[in-house]
Each structure stands twice: as structure tokens, then as C-alpha cells.
Write a protein that binds this DNA or RNA. Sequence first.
DNA 1: ACCTGAACACCGTTCAAGT
DNA 2: ACCTGAACACCGTTCAAGT
Lengths: 199, 199
Amino acid sequence: MSVAEQPYHHGSLRQVLLARAESTLEKDGVDGLSLRQLAREAGVSHAAPSKHFRDRQALLDALAESGFLRLTAALERAVEEAEPHARARFAALAGAYVSFALEHRELLALMYGNKHAPGAASQVVEAGHASMDLTVRIVTEAQAAGDIGPGDASRIALVAFATFHGIATLAAGGMLDGAPVDEVVTAASDTFWRGLAQA
Amino acid sequence: MSVAEQPYHHGSLRQVLLARAESTLEKDGVDGLSLRQLAREAGVSHAAPSKHFRDRQALLDALAESGFLRLTAALERAVEEAEPHARARFAALAGAYVSFALEHRELLALMYGNKHAPGAASQVVEAGHASMDLTVRIVTEAQAAGDIGPGDASRIALVAFATFHGIATLAAGGMLDGAPVDEVVTAASDTFWRGLAQA
DNA sequence: ACCTGAACACCGTTCAAGT
DNA sequence: ACCTGAACACCGTTCAAGT
């Protein structure tokens, strides 16, 4: 409970607010997120956050952007650690996406909640594209290796990404009806892969 | 602007609140939904809604449940109107899901926002299951007709539903990068179908 | 540059009281 | 049964003023 000794200037208020916001988000949902409460926890006045985030929406946008950056990082890590076959990388991508969704349910909802301030939208969307680009890369590699048929790689990647995303959100929403997550992920990845190989 | 003449009892306050809530939801998002504002628009005191909805969350739950009911109805209609082949029905299902998502973006976000009061959760989840059951039925028919391979129909349906859901949410969130919705839906439906046929 | 303190308009929720 | 009116605690946002 003890607050630091920064005499007047907090020093890193923005960072502190973002960090606390994220843990509160996952605990209480978006509705439980209050700028005033965050300020209290950081030991500053309720008006201080406004210098770092124009309004509540700006804080949410910042959280969403950071979420996309970390999702992309998690996907990249999973792909690197997977066996160097396109199909294994494909499955790793799906698995990592679902893991991220389960660990950051509220954050994921925020990321895809199509709530974006006019200005921040481009930044958030851009951060989201990075994950998609990664998928495009794997599809292209798979095509080069002759594992899957030809076709617009970005179109194929988009459908693949949508599939992973759908399972991830259903899983995060507890709508898998008790079906083991791993099995569903594997089933989806395999079915989709077969469909591509045959194209 | 003129308010009705119901002298004291409103008569159908619950219905009126739900209807207005839905149009406000689609216009201003969940955050723009206020019980007090709704009461004002209905011409009653701000405390009146509490007799029909315990709290704000109860109103959101009611909206989500009605959303699932209508989604299921829309899917059923699409399946009936499609050509009587499993594959055509499959594609119709995907198309109808995406159409619903585009027409009711905010409502869909609410439906899958894993926000549910402890009691209402079961009702909302149950309403969501109806859409899934419809998908199971089509998968079973396709298996009986020999169009797709054997396997746990509910598991296959779950993956199919997740795929449709993923494309629908991506489309609703404007994350299709300008790719024509119809093409993406067709590509997903076709790829998935090929994967199933080959299983 | 960064933060405070007061002020404003708006909430959700509760509860005695009215019809 | 259904609704009112006042009350309470909490918001987000703004803005002059302090350091």
C-alpha cells in the first residue's frame, strides 16, 4: 500500500497507469476500469492521468495496441519454437493464439471490440496487421515448399487467421462446451490444412 | 417527442426499454447505454426501469439473449432458403452469420463479450447453443449423405461454427483489409468443406 | 512539463412513499 | 403491481492555479 517518494513528479506515471490498468482489466473487465481509481492506486490526483491519456478511451486504445504487439510477439515465438515444417508452424500459430486468448480474455475483447478513437484507430489496426503479416509469411513458405496449393497468400492467411480467431474467442468465452481446447484447435488446424493442400 | 398518455402505469415499459436500448446500442455502443437516458426517452422516472431489470447488467443480458435468438432464427431461415445440398447449406450458414454480424456489430460484441450475471449466464449460453445445434444438424445430414467423412458431428460443427464466427467478427471489426466479404466467406467455406470431405 | 483541487454534469442503485 | 422523488456514492472531464 505504501506509495513511492517521488516528491511531486511521479516520474513514470504513464507506465504505472498502463500496468495497473491491465491487471484491473483482466480482473474486473472493462467496466471495472476507472481513471479515478487508477489515479488513487498510483497515488496521484484524479486529474493527473489526463496529461498522459486524453480520456478514458485513449487509455483503452493504448491497452489494445499493447495487446496486439504482445500477441504478435507470442505468435512469433511459437512459430520459431515449432518444428520447421509449414504444417507444424501452422498448428503452433493456432495454439499460441488460443493460449493468448485464454490468458488475456478481457484484453482480447478490448482489442477486437471495434472501439477506437478516430486518431488511435490507425495505430491499433496497424498493430493488429502485424499478426496477420506473420500468417501471410507462413502461408507463402508453405506454398513455396509445395505443401499447399497456389492462390492469393494474403487471402488464404486471412481465412486462416479468422479460423484461429474464432476458436480463440469461443474458447475465451467458455463456449467450447467442455470440449478439450487442444483437440478443437488440432481439429480446426488439420481440417483447414487438408482443405488447403487439396486446393 | 410526444409521450403517450398512459396515466400512471406505462403498460409495456419492459418492451419499450428493450427496443430503445437496442437501437441506442447499435448507434452509440455499450458505453452509450444508460438506464437513466432510457427512462427519460420512455417518459418514466429514472428508477422505474429497476422494476423490470435488476440492474444495468440484466438489461445487457436480456439484449444478448434476444440477439442469440434472432441469430438462430436468421441462420435457420438461410438454411431453409438454400439449395437442399449440404454444401450449399453450409455456405448459406456462413453467409447469414456474417450478414448478421455486419448488421448488428455492437449486439454481437455484447453476445460474445463473456459478460454475464451469474444467473443469466445459463439463459444466454443456452440461447447461444441453439445456433450451434443447427450447425450440428447440417453436419450430421452431410455425413448421412456421404458428403463429408465420419467423425464426432458436434466437434466438427464446433470448428465450423468457430470459423464462421471468426470471419464474422473480423468483418464486423473492419479487419478484412478491404477484401470483399463474400469472397472471404466463400473461400473459408470452400476450404473448410474440402478439408472435411477429405477426412 | 507535470500535477492539484474544485467544479460540473452525468451515472447506477436504493428506498421510503405514493397510486 | 408499478412508478416517483430524493439521496448516496461514484464517475469522466475541464480548468485555473500551484511547483
